[in-house]
Design a binder for these strands. Structure first.
Lengths: 124, 124
DNA sequence: TTGAATGCAAAAAATTTGCATATTG
DNA sequence: CAATATGCAAATTTTTTGCATTCAA
């Protein structure tokens, strides 16, 4: 299961389910098992949950941390950026408001370079 | 409807529904109406959608923009911070990756000052 | 044998859609 | 009358839970 999340980089429960089923094995693993395992891994701090997709949560391996997720509202692509850019922000927030932001679970929405170029002002 | 979102600051469809129903009127407004209206307002750019809660989307008025949402994973409180802190981040990202981040829809997860103090290392 | 993990089925919760009826202009 | 918005009911989608079973220590 952890292997699945690691292999996928970041995935919705549905993705994980598909991945596990593709790997074969009978009977097929059940969705409830995926949800339960994912919840457990989250508690253990081995995977993190982030709302990347609009409808479903996404999980990504903890080692994969230290990245920002850049979600393009036009094409849906999820890119990544080093987290150091956000560290300043986190430090600043902490100093000013006392809020300790978890930068490893950070998702930013916007438009990727390609989409911004294709259609600078157009919606999805 | 817009008034409801404005009055609430930020709210899930359920919150909006409750607010409208509390305002009275028979028959009670229906959930589908709320979803449809919210989707419309979003398209018009009058409200923004952000995944503040774990299960449901949250909407907040566009004028309310220029704020970061700070969601505490311990107590669930949603605080706000001026957006300027994130502008640097956005500018930096754009320069380095070409990604144009929408800072007005930004939600950060972490722990608010009160919770961090109560229990510096404890989970929710 | 006891406890953790799992499949399966059913329940909840959140969101969407079809359709007939208002309501507005 | 035409176009739009709304209520209502039913369908979808995503996630959770109860229960009986299985597997391993």
């Amino acid at each position: 299961m952890l292997a699945a999340v690691r292999a996928l980089g970041h995935a919705t429960p549905e993705d994980v389910l598909a991945h596990l089923r593709a790997a074969g094995g009978t009977p097929a693993v059940d969705a409830s098992t995926v949800y339960r395992a994912l919840a457990l891994l989250e508690e253990l701090g081995l995977v993190a949950r982030t709302a990347l997709e609009r409808r479903a949560d996404s999980f990504h391996p903890a080692e994969h941390g230290g990245h920002l997720h850049l979600v393009c509202d036009s094409c849906g692509a999820v890119a990544e950026a080093p987290a150091d850019a956000a560290c300043d922000l986190a430090a600043d927030l902490r100093r000013r408001t006392g809020f300790t932001a978890d930068v490893t679970h950070l998702a930013l929405r916007g438009r990727c370079a390609a989409c911004a170029q294709d259609d600078p002002r157009e919606g999805p």
